[in-house]
């Protein structure tokens, strides 16, 4: 996989091998982890303040919908690119206007991986648990992409 970045045109992921598609598709799987309630986790610190019940009723549904919107957008872009090219080489173009939903979806994926595998507190080694190592590699890949979006300006 190669990445081309330009301030005007945005980012292009150039997928050269079939496994490059799998790496990109993994974002969707990780960001859509049903066992991880991102919206709930972000307000967990409010539990002690006595506002949690109101927050759950009035705020969490909007947060969940916003996160789902970002994910749906990225799913659509990847599926469209995939339907044109898979399993052959192809590319995914991400214009500057799309940086935020991409960044947010990658963040969702990394937060879910962190909640599941505790990767930063105890980084895995390649010869240890294969699932944790694969999660670590994916998280590093997502983080690298996020840095590209930040470098170009999120908007």
């Amino acid at each position: 996989m190669k990445l081309s970045a330009s301030p005007m045109d945005g980012i292009e992921l150039i997928l050269e091998e079939p496994h490059d598609w799998l790496m990109v598709m993994a974002v969707l799987h990780d960001a859509n982890d049903r066992d991880f309630d991102l919206a709930g986790s972000l307000g967990a610190a409010a539990e002690a303040s006595g506002q949690w019940e109101d927050w759950k009723e009035w705020v969490l549904p909007d947060l969940r919908e916003g996160f789902a919107d970002n994910l749906r957008h990225v799913v659509r872009v990847i599926k469209d690119a995939q339907s044109e090219a898979f399993p052959g080489p192809g590319s995914i173009k991400i214009p500057p206007d799309d940086y935020f939903p991409w960044y947010a979806t990658l963040n969702q994926a990394r937060l879910a991986l962190e909640a599941k595998y505790r990767l930063t507190a105890d980084p895995p080694a390649p010869d240890q648990n294969a699932d944790r190592w694969a999660a670590f590699v994916r998280s590093q890949f997502y983080s690298m992409l996020q840095s590209q979006f930040l470098n170009l300006g999120l908007g």
Binding site: L42, G43, A44, A46, S49, A104
Partner: peptide
């Protein structure tokens, strides 16, 4: 802030 995925509370 939470919609930007930052862990946030008020006090």
């Amino acid at each position: 802030l939470q919609s930007h995925q930052l862990t946030t509370s008020i006090e």
